[in-house]
Simulated assay, not measured.
Amino acid sequence: MLYKGSCHCGNVAFEVEGELGGAVRCNCSICARKGALLWAVPHDRLTLVAWGDDLGRYTFGEAKIAHRFCRGCGIHPFAEDVREDGERNAYINLNCVADVDPSTLSVFDFDGRSA
């Protein structure tokens, strides 16, 4: 199924193809503060349709994940693996996806603080 999402102001927009089975709630220092519910998909299933100079990047710790955000409204619509070797994933913030009610999803709690 094709899902469409964006930041609040719409300057960063994306499409993602896949079957949404549930969400991951990570308790790492940034995900907990954002309140993100994540959906991991192979990176090649994420297509950016709008971004320009508005797409910011934030990494911390070992800098394995690039947390992407809109420089205009500050919303974090997705994150992505930055490693060059192996399979890359994108982590979609389901709170930014149109026509998805996060309260209806089963949620898996991931201990990102210990990872």
Rank of each mutant, 00 (worst) to 15 (best):
A32P: 00
F69T: 08
I65R: 07
C7K: 03
E87H: 07
R113Y: 05
D85G: 05
A63C: 12
N89H: 13
G21V: 14
D85L: 12
A40T: 03
G61C: 03
T104Y: 07
C70K: 12
N89R: 12
H43R: 15
C96V: 02
R57E: 14
I92F: 09
L105P: 09
S114P: 07
G52S: 12
F60Q: 13
V24T: 00
D81W: 08
V16E: 10
F108K: 11
P77I: 00
H67F: 12
C7E: 05
N11M: 08
W39F: 06
K4T: 14
D81L: 12
D54T: 06
F78M: 14
D53W: 02
C70L: 12
W51T: 11
G72W: 00
G21W: 05
N95Y: 07
A36L: 06
D101W: 07
P42T: 09
W39D: 05
D54C: 02
G5V: 03
E15H: 12
N27L: 11
R33D: 10
A23Y: 11
F14E: 01
V41E: 11
G10H: 06
R33T: 13
F14I: 00
Y58P: 06
D111F: 02
V97G: 09
D111Y: 00
E19Y: 09
A40L: 02
C9L: 04
D99K: 14
S106W: 01
T59L: 06
G86P: 08
F78A: 00
T47Y: 02
V100R: 09
V24W: 00
